[in-house]
């Protein structure tokens, strides 16, 4: 597997930098195929807009949190992610009938791998966020603040508790959170790639 950065990595950089010029180019070049796919398969223009935005935010998360490097052309990678996102939504709605537009889907193994990696990342981190919400109460409040402020002295000052107590509570709450994540039925299928 080549790890060489593809020239289309500029679109990933544009998401990280919120670069309006390059993002304009991204929409201009790549949104057409996705709109066509979604609207040919029981979706509306609003659905297409949501799919595109959700996928781009997922890529942003992966790039921002894991230094994701694009090693293949953006076109097929992006299309396949959007396509699968939409198929999942259709599946949830119970719609199985899908019009296949083969002429716009030519996927290499490398692209397939990157798509799976991005999808896995999205599902795994969504599980983290879901379990944090389920954790609730004081634990969630303390973790929310410690994730935002990072520095435990600031966390303690913000919550008006002692530094020692804040640190002890954070590890206790993290222990609870990781237990909940691990005991989730789909955790074992969400391996890091």
């Amino acid at each position: 597997m080549s790890l060489k950065k593809h020239s289309d990595h500029k679109y990933i950089e544009a998401l990280l930098q919120n670069d309006n010029r390059v993002l304009n180019e991204l929409y201009q070049k790549f949104s057409g195929k996705i709109i066509l796919y979604v609207t040919k398969n029981s979706g509306s223009y609003d659905d297409a807009q949501d799919v595109i935005q959700e996928v781009l935010i997922t890529i942003f998360h992966q790039a921002n949190e894991r230094n994701f490097t694009l090693t293949c052309p953006f076109d097929a990678y992006f299309f396949l992610l959007c396509k699968r996102n939409w198929l999942n939504k259709l599946n949830k709605k119970g719609i199985k009938k899908v019009t296949i537009l083969e002429e716009i889907t030519s996927i290499t193994d490398e692209q397939e791998f990157l798509v799976q990696e991005t999808e896995m990342y999205e599902k795994r981190t969504a599980l983290f966020e879901k379990k944090l919400i389920e954790l609730g109460g004081k634990c969630k409040e303390l973790l929310d603040v410690s994730f935002k402020l990072k520095n435990m002295e600031k966390v303690a000052a913000f919550l008006n508790i002692s530094y020692g107590y804040a640190r002890k509570k954070k590890s206790e709450c993290m222990s609870k959170l990781t237990k909940m994540i691990k005991s989730s039925s789909n955790f074992n299928s969400l391996t890091t790639m």
Binding site: L15, N18, N20, L23, N24, Y27, Q28, S31, I35, Y45, A48, Q49, I52, Q53, L56, I57, F60, H61, N64, E65, T125, F128, E129, L132, L143, D144, S146, F147, K148, K150, M174, L177, T178, I181
Partner: peptide, 30 residues
């Protein structure tokens, strides 16, 4: 978990700024 959620929470504003841009571009191109 710690690294991912710390980054996601502390960069929430950047994410929201990007969403603003994507919403405008979506209105325009989609």
């Amino acid at each position: 978990v710690n690294d991912t959620l710390s980054k996601r929470f502390s960069d929430k504003d950047r994410e929201n700024e990007l969403k603003e841009t994507l919403t405008i571009l979506g209105e325009k191109y989609v």
